[in-house]
């Protein structure tokens, strides 16, 4: 029995890593654009499908196909920014919010037609497992956790030590002031947004590879989870997003262990409501007005 909970905990950490990646991406987008997006989950799933397309239809090597998907989704992010945000940066925020809703609907239904509504299976990127007592640890789980940590540290380095990264951080603090000290606002917004998208897609690929299944219908749910993780951690805080992601992943899997798997997706929602009631600024966030 204890072994069962332990393996659920380990599943939770794996899934938490994935949510953490998506939450960082989400938090980056929030930082650069100053608002939430409703299309995030759909964009992420679309990116994973691009990789899947390279693999299943063009017959490329699985890892190569997934790696190729990343630069393509980066460019796709630029396009999304152009359609949904560019024109509305100085206008009422609600307009951008609505365009992301519209774009999400469009992308999800387009993906359904291009890729089909059913689940598509992605083979595991890394095969094999280790057994410790009665605890099974898949290599893919270790891979996900390690990759996530590498990504987080690389991103930290990028945001703190490179010119572009510092520009993005400046932007998220104060757009006008950033402009005054010479940050190219337009370029930084596009770069920050696309980087957020790529992080999400990387998380999505890990998710697909862990569950061996992706479907265009997963989008809104993934977006909701990334949002929950970000709100839980404090919406402007990147370390907060990471911790929020891990907490969400672990809670979800423990809930599945205790109750039933049908209620997996309810956990994120309950956490979201509790955070909003108890501490809307999240665990590590400053008081922000939305």
């Amino acid at each position: 029995m204890f072994g069962f909970y332990l393996s659920q905990l380990f599943n939770g950490i794996t899934q938490g890593s994935i949510y953490a990646l998506m939450a960082i991406g989400y938090s980056l987008i929030f930082g650069t654009l100053g608002l939430v997006t409703f299309a995030y989950g759909d964009i992420v799933i679309f990116g994973v499908f691009v990789g899947y397309y390279f693999y299943a239809v063009l017959g490329l090597n699985l890892i190569l196909a997934m790696l190729l998907a990343l630069p393509i989704t980066f460019l796709f992010g630029v396009l999304v920014e152009k359609i949904c945000y560019e024109k509305f940066r100085k206008e009422a925020r609600m307009l951008m919010l609505i365009t992301t809703v519209g774009f999400g609907i469009f992308l999800r239904s387009a993906s359904q037609i291009i890729f089909g509504t059913g689940n598509k299976s992605i083979p595991t990127l890394i095969e094999g497992k280790i057994e410790i007592g009665n605890l099974n640890i898949l290599y893919i789980q270790l891979g996900i956790i390690i990759f996530t940590l590498i990504f987080i540290y690389a991103l930290r380095y990028f945001l703190n030590n490179t010119r572009t990264g510092i520009g993005i951080r400046a932007l998220s603090m104060d757009q006008d002031a950033a402009k005054l000290v010479g940050v190219n606002v337009d370029k930084s917004i596009k770069f920050g947004h696309s980087l957020g998208v790529v992080l999400g897609v990387f998380g999505g690929i890990m998710l697909g590879s862990f569950y061996n299944a992706i479907s265009p219908m997963m989008g809104p749910n993934l977006g909701l989870k990334a949002f929950t993780a970000v709100v839980l951690g404090g919406i402007t805080s990147i370390p907060g997003a990471v911790i929020g992601g891990y907490i969400l992943g672990i809670m979800e899997n423990l809930a599945v262990a205790v109750f039933s798997s049908g209620y997996r997706d309810v956990v994120a929602f309950i956490i979201l409501i509790i955070v909003l009631v108890v501490k809307p600024s999240g665990l590590f966030g400053k008081e922000v007005k939305f």
Binding site: V101, G102, I105, F106, L107, R108, I113
Partner: peptide
């Protein structure tokens, strides 16, 4: 649904 999405945009 594509039409709805495009209509909103």
């Amino acid at each position: 649904m594509i039409i709805y999405g495009v209509a909103i945009l």
